[in-house]
Every structure is written in C-alpha cells, then in structure tokens.
C-alpha cells in the first residue's frame, strides 16, 4: 500500500471524526502524518498508536502564529509539506432567527480563516517541496444549505471560494500544487452521533438523515477518507479546483423541505 509513499502530510482536525479516518488511511498508504488538532489527549493517543508515522501538533487553525510555528516545526522534523487535509470544523445548527453573531464569527473563523491560513502556509511550504496537494473538507451544505445551517453553510461556502482561488493561483504560477474539496453529506462521526443523541427521537432523525441521500443511508468515515486519499495522491494529478461530492447522491435531489434536518 504505497499510494502516498514517503509523503509528508498534515491533517487538521486529525484527532476526531473524518480527520481520524484520513490520518489512518494516509499512514496505511505510506505517508508520515502530523495530526493537528486542539484535542490534545485524543491527538497524542493517535500519534502514539501510529509510532514513527504519526506526530501530534497542537494547532488552533484560527491562530496565524500557531500555523507559522507548526509548519516551521514540521519542516525541521520531516521536511516541507506534501499534503494538507483541512478537516477541522465546527457545526452548531441554528436558524437565522436563533443564531448569534458570536456563533457566526466562530464558524467563519474556523472554516473561513482556518482554510485561508492553512492554504497560505501550506503553499509556502509546498513550494519548497516542488509541489503538493491540498484537500479541504467541505460539505453538501456549502452547495445547498439547509435552513439550520445559517453559519455553517456560509462558512463552508467561504472555504470553497478559497479552494478555487488557491487552485487557480497555483495552477497559473506553475507551482504543481493542486487544491480540491470533498463534500460529504451525513457521515457517522462523533458530531453526528451527538446530533442524533440530542434528538427526541434519535432513530427517527437517523432515518431522516439517511433519506436525504438517494442511497438512503449515512456514509462511513472510510468512504470520505477514500476520496481524500484519491485527491491527495498523484492519481488525481489533473484535478484541481474540483468539488468532489461524496454525498450518496444527495445533491441530485432538491432540499427536503419541512423535515428540519
């Protein structure tokens, strides 16, 4: 298994949810991976489990100084970055009537500023490596947001615009750096479990979430990680600025109005 053999990768949000799946798959395929997260305990634990191939970095993606220091440390340890996967995210659903300005700013900071800073410092490092691949985890909510994704949908749309401008800039400059996004629909992550468990009728909500996809089920973390691996590897060498939907067909259907999902 050598699809990203010898590559140096960083996965933000690497200690939870989709990030963990991506970290494991990249390591399985031969990469050395920095698990960048604010969740120290989970991140350290995963790094220990991965041995030589894993390294934990405490990183708040909204903090420019931490990005600068983190990339510097990484370069000293393993050399410049080949792959950046930005999976750090928050999602606290609320309608326009209920969402506060503070919530809005939190979402924009993590997804918008986070993606901005991540791309900025990754490009700087990847130029030294002679190229690289950035994969930003977006969402179907950036393309077709539901009524409760006021902050999340807007923040992911901001992230999408960064993905495209980075792809165009790097393409035009001939940096050999590609930048793409993966758009999952509902996926079995701790965040989803949390939604489900907080619902009055968890099984009913699970069914509602599943029914939003023509495949009529919720994705596994591995199914998202497979797409990330493909976009991070040289197999996708002519793909940049692409929005890859791994959504069970959700975006082929109109939003299921009235279901409150």
């Amino acid at each position: 298994m050598t699809r990203v053999n010898g590559k140096v990768a960083m996965v933000t949000g690497g200690a939870t949810g989709i990030g963990v799946g991506v970290v494991r798959m990249l390591v399985d395929e031969g990469a050395r991976v920095v698990i960048a997260d604010i969740a120290e305990e989970a991140g350290q634990q995963l790094a220990e489990e991965l041995g030589e191939s894993g390294l934990f970095l405490r990183l708040d993606v909204t903090d420019e100084g931490q990005w600068q220091q983190g990339i510097r440390d990484l370069e000293e340890h393993w050399g410049p970055l080949d792959i950046l996967v930005q999976s750090a995210g928050i999602s606290r659903p609320a309608s326009i009537e209920d969402a506060s300005l503070a919530e809005w700013r939190d979402h924009m900071a993590v997804h918008g500023e986070g993606a901005f800073l991540g791309c900025k410092y990754a490009v700087q490092s990847m130029k030294k490596a002679g190229g690289g691949a950035i994969v930003n985890i977006s969402s179907v909510e950036s393309i077709r947001p539901g009524p409760l994704f006021t902050c999340y949908g807007a923040a992911k749309a901001a992230q999408d615009a960064i993905t495209k401008t980075v792809a165009l800039h790097c393409g035009e400059r001939g940096y050999n750096i590609r930048c793409n996004s993966v758009h999952p629909a509902a996926t079995y992550t701790p965040l989803l479990e949390q939604y489900l468990n907080s619902a009055e009728d968890p099984a009913g909500l699970e069914k509602t979430y599943a029914s939003m996809q023509p495949l009529n089920r919720i994705a596994t973390v591995e199914e998202i990680a497979h797409a990330v691996l493909f976009l991070a590897s040289d197999e996708s060498s002519f793909m940049t600025g692409h929005q890859m939907y791994v959504d069970g067909g959700a975006l082929t259907k109109p939003y299921p109005s009235g279901e409150g999902a």
């Binding site: 495209k164 792809a167 165009l168 393409g171 996809q213 023509p214 495949l215 994705a219 596994t220 199914e223 998202i224 497979h226 797409a227 691996l229 493909f230 996708s236 002519f238 793909m239 940049t240 600025g241 692409h242 890859m244 939907y245 791994v246 959504d247 069970g248 067909g249 975006l251 082929t252």
Partner: peptide, 20 residues
C-alpha cells in the same frame, strides 16, 4: 468500491478548467 457513497456525481479531470 472506494467510491461506494458516490453516485450522481460529475468528477472533473480538467486541470482546474471548470473552477474558473
């Protein structure tokens, strides 16, 4: 099978053309 949750999608291999 890696794409087991992907259906109805248009995947580009276009060097970024459709991102413009």
């Amino acid at each position: 099978d890696a794409a087991s949750f992907t259906t109805g999608s248009l995947l580009t291999a276009d060097g970024g053309w459709t991102a413009t």
